[in-house]
């Protein structure tokens, strides 16, 4: 096995993991605290990509795209929370699934009307569109390194928020025992809206960051939201720490699986069979992983018993 390839795939895995963390953090918060299954979280990621891409294409400034798109999408998120989702907190999970699926249908169709049907192709910001040499002669994308960096900064920020602030204390209380926060005498409505806004902002940030790599497309949210759900389930619902660890593990499994599964399988079965089976199995890998985790730990890695 080549070390350069292995290290590069680990970097790819971390980059994907960081992206999953940005998406899953918002999900695990809304789920853990408000008990809301928000399928439409991926929609905010998509809107982040579209709005960020549009601002970037207009102004030519990626920084401006980040600074404007994230609050705009967070605003849209808060608006849906106030108008629609707020009334669903006390309702059955299935009602939430149905309503948020309605939101997905609506927004996916809306972006097809507002933007070109096949979405937008976004260039990389010039100053990040290059590669840097790392050890073992690896040339790695500066842009992807930037995503890893931003994700880690956000992770540290989230850690500080959750452990060092009053808001974080409420979040922890809510995630451990939901009825607790009702007893704490805080303005619950405001707390929920605030948490929802933070989650949406993280999702939108992920969208803006990924737009140059993936482009902006209708339906891009659903492709990743299922994996984000896998992440929060593996991590244990409501746990930001679990979410971070699970996101990195999932990213690494996906990236390394896609790269080395045929080699690993070939140790056990004939090479031909291994090469034929590897692509199918690597598609299933994260689901197999989740099933195994839940088989041994039905509450996920860091889940609390009350959920």
């Amino acid at each position: 096995m080549e070390w350069a390839l292995l290290i590069e795939q680990i970097l790819n895995g971390i980059q994907f993991g960081v992206l999953l963390f940005l998406l899953a953090a918002g999900l695990t918060l809304t789920f853990g605290i408000m008990d809301l299954v928000n399928l439409a979280h991926g929609t905010m990621y998509m809107l982040g990509a579209f709005i960020g891409a549009t601002i970037f294409l207009w102004t030519g400034s990626f920084i401006l795209a980040l600074l404007l798109a994230v609050p705009i999408v967070a605003g849209i998120g808060i608006l849906t929370e106030i108008t629609t989702l707020r009334t669903l907190y006390q309702r059955h999970h299935l009602d939430q699934v149905l309503a948020t699926f309605g939101l997905i249908l609506f927004f996916n169709e809306l972006v097809q009307v507002v933007w070109p049907l096949d979405g937008l192709t976004v260039p990389f910001p010039k100053y990040l569109d290059s590669t840097v040499p790392l050890m073992f002669g690896i040339e790695y994308s500066v842009y992807r390194l930037m995503i890893i960096g931003s994700g880690l900064i956000v992770a540290v920020g989230m850690w500080a928020l959750v452990t060092k602030t009053r808001l974080g204390m409420l979040i922890r209380a809510g995630a451990t025992d939901r009825t607790m926060i009702y007893a704490l005498g805080t303005n619950i409505r405001l707390l929920f809206t605030l948490v929802f806004g933070i989650g949406t902002a993280l999702g939108a940030l992920a969208g803006v960051l990924m737009a140059p790599i993936l482009g902006a497309n209708s339906g891009m949210g659903e492709q990743i939201i299922i994996i984000a759900f896998v992440v929060i389930v593996i991590g244990g619902i409501g746990s930001v720490r679990g979410c971070f660890i699970a996101a990195l593990i999932t990213g690494l499994i996906d990236s390394l699986g896609r790269s080395f599964l045929d080699v690993i399988l070939a140790l056990f079965i004939p090479v031909n069979a291994a090469e034929a089976a590897a692509p199918a199995i690597s598609s299933m890998l994260i689901y197999i992983f989740m099933t195994l985790i839940l088989f041994f730990k039905p509450q996920g890695l860091f889940g609390s018993q009350t959920q």
Partner: peptide
């Protein structure tokens, strides 16, 4: 059925996804 709530939702989805990818391959 070892799991509950949303974990159950996700694990049923995951198992079906596996068979889905199997049928594609």
């Amino acid at each position: 059925l070892r799991t509950r709530g949303v974990y159950f939702i996700m694990i049923t989805m995951a198992l079906t996804q596996m068979i889905y990818f199997l049928s594609i391959s």
